[in-house]
Design a protein around this nucleic acid. Structure first.
Lengths: 204, 204
DNA sequence: GGTAAAACAGACCGGTTGTCCTGTTTTGTC
DNA sequence: GACAAAACAGGACAACCGGTCTGTTTTACC
């Protein structure tokens, strides 16, 4: 029963947002009475906090963290996720946006508990990519590019691309941004640049 | 009077969002009676449409379009805007996010009129950067990088960085992403590059 | 300075929202 | 099978929301 409420809430929060999702609608959609809902989630805020902590975090984990960790490199992981998400969106024909971003925009200024919960997910997401790239570098690959910088850019590009994709209802911008991300190379400054590039070619 | 309402609405929509801004609050904050408000904006939706068309578009124009057009190059324009916004946010000590993005997330799935109005602003923004870079290229500068690709990435990176900055209440990620963007270089040409690219595509 | 339209005032209403409260049923445990 | 705790049912309610309505005042123009 608790799970049913969470399912419906997760879906409705993404499709309509937090404020536009009334508890009445959620109750009807989940087939749950007011008493039952209030038992598991005393307030609407508690419900949202649960959705963020249990569902949104899990979605990021499944969509991003796991594929990145499983990939051959950070770069490859980013490429894989962008491609997979773009393909999924194109197949389903509409774009509802990134659950994390959607809630982050609506809630992070409204309440500090919301904000820190969402910020934690963002931080973990970035750190996974950065750590992965650091591992790549100690393994001899991926010269020059700053891991934290790359991770921040990858997450920002994804989030921003999803915003535009949602607004234009067209996933094409995701592919555009991925191609742009592919062009992120270590800055060709000084003689070190040539060496780096050689290394990059080498390991492939 | 109409201007006063728009001022207050613009501010409240950015600080609290559309749904969380009640007309009662807006009336009180603007010192306007219900009748006056209803005279200028028959519905709340009409008010939001006016805010988007007159204020949000103008904000993007002033923050992005004008500086980019005035800059020596598209790249330089992007650099300038990122720096200026980061500096402004750091000075004021809090982050309310990008007005366009905030409303885009909350409204683009709710109503198609909202959606297309917001999508138009996004499109104009991207096109300005892309056109600027095309001009750079015909003037001999900026080789290799695809203008549309760069524009999409710049806008996405900015939007996404603002999302994270808003969620973490820290503008630092903006500077990180700018540094990442600086590393966007035309893909190295030559046999080595071609080989690498082939491998990358193959993996997908 | 008369007049029509626009601008504004302020009360009002139906509907909805989130929350709370009192019972009833189910579950787990000795 | 007694019994306490958790799970659930369902109504009640006070606050609030957006929208509408009827008047009054200001403005613009001939």
């Amino acid at each position: 029963m608790r799970r049913r409420v969470l399912d419906v809430a997760e879906d409705s929060f993404q499709a309509r947002g937090y404020h536009a999702s009334s508890l009445g609608d959620l109750m009807a959609a989940a087939g749950v009475t007011g008493g039952a809902l209030h038992h598991h989630f005393p307030t609407k805020k508690a419900l949202a906090l649960a959705v963020i902590g249990e569902r949104v975090a899990a979605a990021v984990e499944k969509t991003w963290i796991e594929p990145v960790l499983a990939a051959a490199s950070a770069r490859e992981g980013v490429r894989t996720v962008f491609g997979a998400v773009a393909a999924e969106l194109e197949q389903q024909g509409y774009v509802r946006g990134c659950p994390l971003n959607n809630l982050a925009h609506e809630l992070s200024l409204a309440d500090d508990e919301f904000r820190s919960a969402l910020a934690g997910i963002f931080a973990g997401w970035r750190q996974t990519i950065a750590d992965k790239m650091r591992a790549d570098q100690t393994n001899g690959g991926e010269g020059g590019v700053d891991p934290d910088r790359f991770a921040a850019l990858a997450v920002a590009a994804y989030s921003g691309a999803m915003s535009m994709a949602k607004t234009s209802q067209d996933a094409g911008v995701l592919r555009e941004c991925l191609k742009g991300l592919e062009s992120v190379q270590p800055p060709p400054s000084g003689p070190a640049a040539r060496r780096r590039r050689r290394v990059l070619v080498h390991i492939r």
